[in-house]
Each structure stands twice: as C-alpha cells, then as structure tokens.
C-alpha cells in the first residue's frame, strides 16, 4: 500500500501554511455581510426613532403641556377657534380594547399551548402547530373586516345595542389576533421544560394534569409571562383592525358597548389629512413617540424575562 503513495518532497512541506484558498475568502465575505445585516437592523430602528422624534419635537418643545396632553379628554385637532390635543380618551380607548383583548387571549392561548405542547401527540400536534401559525399570518385588515361585517351585526343582534362597533368588538378581534403569537411563544416556553422533570413527576404517580399544573407551568412561568407581554405589545400597537372594529369615536368608555378610538387608529386616520409641519401633524408624531416608548418597554421587559429563563 504505502509503496503506491507518491512520496511528498520533504522540503516543500509547510511552505504553504499561509496560503488562503477560496473558502477563506467566502468565510470573510459572509462574515462581513452578516455583520452589515446585524448593524443595519440597529441603525434602522435608531433611524425611525430619530425621525419620529424630530417630527414631534416641534410640538414637545413649543406648546406641549403634559396636563392637557395626558389629562384632557378633548381631542379637537381641527377646531378653528381653539384646537385641543388631549389624548386621555384615546389612551383609555386603547387600554380598554387591549385589556379586553388580553382577557380573551390569555385563556385561549395558554389553553392552546398546553394542549399542543403537553397533551396532543404526533400528527394532531403538527397539524395544530401549522394551523396556529397560519392564524398568526392573517393580515390585520382581514380581522378588521371580520369585525366590521360579521361581529358588528352579531353584537347588535345578541346584545340589542344600536352600534356593534365598540370596545367589545375590537377587544374580541384583537384578542383573537394576539392569541396565535402568544400560543406559539407559550408553547416554546413549555417545550423548554426538560422532559426529565415530567418523567420524575410521573414516576411518583402524578397524573397528566398534576404534572402540568405542579411542574411544567411553574417551571415555564417566565416564558409564559413573556408570551402574555408580547401579546399586550401586539394589541397595543395594532392599528387597522382596531380602526375598523372600535367605532372610531372619541369617547371615554363606560361599558363594553361604547365606541372608542385608539391612539394608533387616530394616527392612521388623521396623518394623511394634516398639513406637513402643522401643529396637528406634530402632535400625531408625539403620540407616535409615546406609542413607540410603550411598546419598546413592553418588548424589553418581555425580552429580559425570557433571558432570565435561559440563564437558569
């Protein structure tokens, strides 16, 4: 055997230790591209923040009064005599709709996640996962359409109220919208619970439900909280579906059957009709800054919680 191997000339061995072949250049190139991709994501976010801040800054520095902005329910941006910009009603509208959405979405999504992650097996599980992901992909305008044309008459009939576009409608729609993404994240959190915990509990005689309730859920607690927070962030920032289903009238809600207007929907509906650089225009951007900060904080908290799990 060894006779047939051509003897390498000993003097040349090691001469090409500094040779760079194609793989080396490809590696460097990919390195650079990935780096640019990562950095640009950060730059874009900063850019967006800088842009909305610059547009809203004119109002914030000139005539911004926190007590009017946050404390007044008078949203009259187009008044000829004295325009007022109070977002309290809009903020309450957003909060009411998001709150109801969570009441709907939390039991739905946790139930679905527990069923998919812990109880179903094989094909059922795979099919359900795909279906939930498909639900998450439904465009928000389609949800708004459902709110407008299906839920609206249904609510009018079922509860005998004059208008079906209200907190209840928007809350249900938003809840159904947020549930799939919450389910997916919650299921990931359940999946991250090591199987030997389940095995240990089962070997001591725990039933399926005892394993879930006493072992899996407490262990996955942080991930589940993160799932809920991301759902809240989603509901808070959602625009189109709320615009279509909430009735879009400035109003302090006192019951689920009151129409409301959300912060996001206000921006979407009014920005196109304002003069560039006008006070109204700048106020809308100020609302944008405010929304950005809220969703940023919610996502940051969720992220920190998820990181907390990984550390353990």
């Amino acid at each position: 055997m060894s006779d047939s191997v051509p003897a390498a000339s000993q003097s040349n061995r090691g001469d090409d230790f500094d040779r760079r072949d194609a793989a080396w250049y490809v590696d460097r190139l990919v390195h650079l591209l990935v780096f640019l991709g990562g950095v640009s994501a950060i730059l874009f976010i900063l850019g967006i923040f800088v842009f909305i801040t610059r547009e809203g800054l004119g109002y914030l520095t000139a005539s911004f009064s926190p007590s009017e902005f946050f404390g007044s329910i008078e949203w009259r941006p187009t008044s000829d005599t004295k325009p007022t910009y109070g977002i309290l009603a809009l903020l309450t509208g957003t909060a009411a709709v998001s709150g109801l959405a969570m009441v709907v979405a939390i039991p739905f999504s946790l139930g679905a996640a527990i069923f998919i992650g812990e109880l179903s097996e094989g094909k059922t599980r795979e099919i359900l996962k795909v279906l939930v992901e498909m639900l998450a992909a439904i465009p928000s305008v389609v949800w708004g359409f459902i709110g407008l044309s299906i839920m609206n008459p249904f609510i009018i009939d079922a509860f005998d109220v004059p208008v079906g576009l209200n907190v209840l409608n928007a809350g249900l729609i938003l809840g159904l919208m947020a549930a799939p993404i919450m389910t997916t994240i919650a299921e990931d959190a359940l999946k991250a619970v090591p199987d030997h915990y389940r095995e240990a509990a089962e070997a001591m005689g725990a039933t399926r439900w005892q394993v879930i309730f006493r072992v899996v859920l407490p262990t996955a607690k942080n991930g589940l909280v993160a799932a809920v927070l991301l759902g809240v962030g989603r509901a808070f920032g959602e625009t189109m579906a709320v615009l279509m289903a909430s009735g879009h009238s400035v109003n302090m809600p006192t019951s689920p059957f009151d129409s409301v207007r959300a912060l996001t929907a206000t921006i979407a509906a009014e920005l196109g009709e304002t003069a560039h650089g006008s006070e109204h225009y700048r106020v809308l951007f100020t609302i944008g800054i405010f929304l950005f900060l809220i969703t940023f904080c919610i996502n940051l908290i969720a992220d920190l919680i998820v990181r907390g799990i990984r550390k353990k």
């Binding site: 070997a203 005689g205 407490p218």
Partner: peptide, 17 residues
C-alpha cells in the same frame, strides 16, 4: 397506586425545580 408502591431513581439525578 402502582407508582406509590414502586418508586424510581433515574440515571441522571432529576430533582424538580
């Protein structure tokens, strides 16, 4: 009831969290 009578210790220690 079976698992009450028959306890099990596993290869990797698996105390619950």
């Amino acid at each position: 009831q079976v698992r009450k009578e028959v306890g099990m210790v596993f290869q990797r220690p698996n105390p619950l969290p």
